[in-house]
Amino acid sequence: MKTITLTVNGRPEKLTLSPHRTLLDVLREDLGLTGAKRGCEAGECGACTVILNGRPVNSCLVLAVELDGADVLTVEGLGGPEGLDPLQQSFVDNFALQCGYCTPGMILMGKALLAKNPRPSEDEVKEFISGNLCRCTGYENIVKAIMAVAAGGERHG
């Protein structure tokens, strides 16, 4: 067992862990954060995507014991009492989800992309989310939802 401290959605957490457990296990089972979904467990579906130290990763492929001092953002860390994050709202407005299983991963990929490239082209959006599978939407509305926030940023910026 190893004890680590890390920050999850802005909150410090201290955890004592067996080394084989993944970040996904710990988020879902120890911290009750079930936004990140268990999909393929092989890094192929993107449903477990979280932002680790500012970068999207597959949380099923990260050992939690490696994360002493790390900063993790899950979909639960978006938005707040005042309402949804603009990208979450855009997914609602653009009907960018049906079953919702891929949605947390898709939204976090959108956040990560817009953070480093506020005005991506449609092709850049498609390439960036190509590690995330969606069985429902055919991707069209997901791309639209991300592009809408990018365009909104331009209008206000």
């Binding site: 890094g43 993107g46 995507t49 680790l52 970068r55 999207p56 990763v57 597959n58 492929l61 990260v62 990929m109 990560a112 960036f128 190509s130 590690g131 995330n132």
Partner: peptide, 9 residues
């Protein structure tokens, strides 16, 4: 190689 998430690790 693979995807954005994989290339970050």
């Amino acid at each position: 190689v693979a995807s954005c998430q994989i290339r970050n690790r």
